[in-house]
Amino acid sequence: MGRIIDAILVKGLPKKDLKNANRVDLWAIVWALSMVLSSFLVESGLLTNPYLVIAASLVVLGVGVRVTLAYKYLLARLDEMERKIQYDALALAVGVSLVGFSGYTVLEQAELLPPIQTYLVMSGLVVIYGIGLIIGRIRLS
């Protein structure tokens, strides 16, 4: 259990890596909030002007690009073992999502399952990525 907690808390990373990771987390929170707020405004009918909807989408897109750049910056300077763990977790998340999504699509076309929601795919990616990180850290500890 202690190893799992250590894996989640990422103990022992150099300060520069923690600072870069915090920057990614901060931008990711801003991105999530901008997406939730935009969706809420559109769904509640408060944002109906097409130009404003496009502007809101561009804000979400811009913040998303900033998250990606911050993550790229983090990866480029990250402790090399942690970088390998990150790459493995990303590969696991993409692989499982592709295989899972393609399998689901077949079942969906056969009308055995309801259409998949986008937020479920995104949440699944994040959860698998997180599990991949924990597995990687435990495996190499």
Partner: peptide
């Protein structure tokens, strides 16, 4: 690097 990296290298895991 992190202490975890040193541990993993010493153990031959990384």
């Amino acid at each position: 690097v992190s202490r975890q990296t040193i541990i993993a290298i010493e153990k031959g895991k990384f």
